[in-house]
Nucleic acid binder design. Structure first.
Lengths: 249, 249
DNA sequence: TAAATAGTGTCTCTCAGACATTATGAG
DNA sequence: CTCATAATGTCTGAGAGACACTATTTA
C-alpha cells in the first residue's frame, strides 16, 4: 500500500501548515459532588437559539478554547470551572479527549475533557441569575441514559467509570468534603460513591496507615460524641493505596 | 476584561463560532517496544528545512489531524502508527492531551497523544528509504533528558510513567511479544520494563490465575527443553490484576 | 442511664513472596 | 550424564475482612 513516503503528510511545509483546515477545539469539565448523600454531576442546558446544535439538550459545562485568554488547556478548564461553581482550587485532572468528524454538526471538532471533584458544602447557591439552565443531576439515573448533547453521554460514562475505579484505591473522596472533616464522614463519601457499605475498622486502619491526613483538633461529629477532625496533608498529592477496598468475593 | 456574564463566552452565537481563531490540532504517538532486551521508543528527527520549528531535534512521530481523511482521533493515531511501523493492530490507548499558547512557535496548539506497544520481532527493518531520520531510542537514557522538540520530553516522561505504573498490575507486556510466546518470555518483558527480577513461581501463579492466556501447544523455549506456548484470549481486553507485583518492602 | 455514634481489639484465612525441588530435552 | 531452562511444590508472614467490644458525649 501507499506509494508516497510515510512522512510526507506528517511534516508538511510551513505554507501548508497555516492553510490546513483546523478542527474546532473545546474544553469540557465533568464536575462531581456529593449532595444530599448522593453523587451528582453538573449539567448545563444548551440554548434554544436558532441554529445552535442540540437545542435544549443537557450538556457538560465547557466551551471553546480562547486563544487570547487561555495560556493552556488546564487554565482553560480552571476558568470554566470557576465560572460555573465559583470554586478556585478543586481537584482537577485530565480525563481524556474526544474528537471526530461528526460529534459536532458544525464540523470536525475535538474536546479536551477534565474531571473535577468539589465539596458539596462549598457550592454557591447555584451561581448568578440563570439557575434554570444549570442543574446538579444525580449520576446514577443520568449516566448511561440517552439524550445528552454531542457525545457527552459517552464522556460522562467514561468519567463515572474513572471515578468508581479510582475511588477503590485512592484518596480521591477527600476532595468531596470541606475541611476539616471526620473519618466517619470520609467513610460515607466512599460508601456513597461505591454504593456499598465499607467496614469501619478496616477503613480507619487503611486510611490512617496511608498517612495523608493530619489531625486538626476535634469537631462535632454526626452524633453527640465529638470526633477527631482531619485535613489533607497535601492537597496536590493524591494518595494511592497499595490494595483495593473490595470485599471478599 | 470581562464585565460580561460568564456563560457568554461558553455559548457564543453561531456566527462567532466559525470566526473564532482555532488552535492547531495534532496527534502524536508514543510507540514502545523491547529490542535487544531493552525498552525503546520510536523517535523521528525534525526536518532541517528553513522555517520549521525545532530543526534537527528528535520528536515523537505524529502530525496534523487531516479533517478530510481522519474520521476520529483514534483513526488518526492508527494511521500514523501504520505509516511508521507497518503494524496495523497493536496495543493503542490514549495517554492525554497537551495544549498551550507556547508549545509550538507557530501558535496556540494542542496535541492528542496516544500510547502504543508493538512486538519487537514484528518490526519492519526500519521502513522505507529514510532510515536516517527515524530511530529506536533506549528509553532509560532518553526519557528525562532535555533537547527534544516541542514539549515532547515532558510527554515522553508521562508515557514512561504510565507504562511503568500499568505494568505493575496489568497484562500490558503481553503486547510486546509476538504470539505465541512462553511464560518465561513474558516474565522477561516484565523484568525488562520494571528493571528488576520477578519471582518465577509467583509470576506463573498470578499470570495463569488471571486467566487471560490460552495454551496453544508447545514451542522451543530459550533452552533445550520445550515450553508451553500461549496467546492472549482476547487482545482487545487488558487484564487488571487484583494486586501489584511489588516485592516486600 | 439510654441512645447514638466514635473509635479499638481480635481472630481468621487468604495469598504474595521466597526458596527448594522436580521435569524435560539437547548434546 | 550433564547442563540449562521449564515447571511445580512448600513454608511463612503480612494484612484485609469480619465482627465484637469499649469510649464519649448529650439528653
Amino acid at each position: 500500500m501507499n506509494a508516497k513516503p510515510a512522512h510526507a503528510s506528517d511534516q508538511p511545509t510551513r505554507a501548508q501548515d497555516m492553510e490546513r483546515p483546523r478542527p474546532l477545539t473545546t474544553v469540557d469539565v465533568v464536575i462531581f459532588t456529593v449532595l444530599d448523600g448522593e453523587l451528582k454531576v453538573l449539567l448545563v442546558q444548551r440554548p434554544q437559539t436558532e441554529g445552535e446544535p442540540f437545542p435544549g439538550r443537557w450538556a457538560l459545562p465547557g466551551g471553546y478554547v480562547d486563544v487570547a485568554r487561555d495560556t493552556n488547556l488546564l487554565a482553560c478548564a480552571r476558568r470554566k470551572l470557576k465560572e460555573k461553581t465559583g470554586i478556585a482550587s478543586p481537584y482537577l485532572e485530565q480525563l481524556g479527549s474526544w474528537g471526530s468528524r461528526d460529534r459536532d454538526p458544525r464540523g470536525w471538532s475535538a474536546t479536551h475533557v477534565y474531571f473535577a471533584l468539589v465539596p458539596g458544602a462549598d457550592l454557591k447557591p447555584m451561581k448568578g441569575g440563570n439557575a434554570a439552565d444549570v442543574r446538579w443531576a444525580p449520576v446514577r439515573t443520568t449516566s448511561g441514559q440517552p439524550g445528552m448533547a454531542f457525545d457527552h453521554g459517552e464522556i460522562l460514562e467514561a468519567a463515572v467509570a474513572r471515578l468508581l475505579s479510582k475511588v477503590e484505591y485512592t484518596s480521591l473522596p477527600a476532595y468531596l468534603l470541606p475541611e476539616p472533616f471526620t473519618l466517619p464522614q470520609l467513610q460515607r463519601m466512599y460508601e456513597v460513591i461505591l454504593d456499598r457499605p465499607v467496614d469501619k475498622s478496616g477503613f480507619r486502619t487503611r486510611t490512617l496507615a496511608a498517612d495523608f491526613l493530619e489531625e486538626v483538633g476535634q469537631v462535632e461529629g454526626d452524633a453527640n460524641r465529638l470526633a477527631l477532625a482531619y485535613k489533607m496533608r497535601d492537597r496536590d498529592r493524591v494518595v494511592v493505596f497499595p490494595r483495593t477496598f473490595s470485599p471478599r468475593g
